[in-house]
């Protein structure tokens, strides 16, 4: 299988605190890669480095074939990112947000219009087209933020705790969108601390105190740790 993200000996220090302690892992093209860990384990730090928002202290990182130190801007053309802080513009409408990001990624207006119509139909948000983001329910905002993050059809999409604060049904619906993106060939890199979501991933890594403690498919992890579900696996690893 082809690696689309290659991380070797990644270290990130903030002063004397080591947020990422010698991480090494690969993500394969087209898979849904779950990046698990307790709060403060270093997930967000790692994902920010992979997106080019933060530079590592040391280590080799390649994303979509480009070097994280020298080719950050090339990486940015090929990725989408949805942060845990909800980050569409609250004071712009749904359509204006889409138009803004489509413009930044250089999507021609004709294609944009077609895709926008298609997207709003799929999300059943046609009536919210000209509504301000601020007035939408959180579940809608998250689905929209995800759709905007993959609007330019990137090779990889990074999702940092995309489903924080919503009910299980809404979360399930959100994962339908993730599956759809994956079936369209987009590699999905997702951090979460919901263990039921871990079951949906092709492979998961579990971080604790800045280190990766385990990395495998959910089935193999359950087998290895002799656990009924991912919850138990996680508790055994993170203690």
């Amino acid at each position: 299988m082809e690696e689309i993200i290659k991380v070797k000996n990644l270290i990130k220090k903030f002063g004397s605190f080591t947020a990422n302690d010698n991480l090494s892992f690969d993500v394969y093209k087209g898979e849904i890669f779950g990046f698990l860990g307790a709060n403060g384990a270093g997930k967000t730090t790692a994902i920010r480095i992979l997106c080019g928002l933060s530079s590592p202290t040391s280590g080799d990182v390649k994303v979509a074939g480009f070097d994280i130190y020298r080719e950050t801007e090339k990486i940015k053309k090929n990725i989408g990112y949805m942060s845990q802080k909800f980050s569409l513009y609250e004071d712009l409408t749904v359509a204006e947000n889409i138009r803004l990001y489509a413009g930044i990624y250089g999507i021609p207006p004709k294609k944009r219009k077609e895709k926008m119509a298609e997207l709003l139909k799929k999300l059943e948000m046609e009536n919210a087209r000209n509504k301000l983001i601020a007035g939408l329910p959180l579940g809608w905002k998250q689905k929209l933020a995800f759709s905007v993050a993959i609007f330019h059809e990137p090779k990889i999409v990074f999702l940092d705790e995309p489903t924080g604060g919503v009910d299980p049904v809404t979360r399930r619906k959100f994962w339908d969108l993730i599956y759809e993106a994956a079936s369209n060939g987009i590699t999905v890199f997702v951090t979460t601390h919901y263990m039921d979501e871990a079951e949906y991933c092709d492979r998961v890594s579990i971080m604790d105190a800045g280190k990766i403690e385990a990395l495998d498919t959910p089935a193999k992890l359950k087998e290895r740790y002799n656990a009924k579900n991912m919850d138990e696996v996680f508790i055994k690893i993170a203690r």
Binding site: L53, E73, K76, S83, S87, E90, Y105
Partner: peptide, 13 residues
């Protein structure tokens, strides 16, 4: 402060 700048910083702008 509100974090929207991150979303712009991951774009090739």
């Amino acid at each position: 402060e509100i974090g929207t700048i991150e979303q712009l910083n991951v774009t090739p702008v």
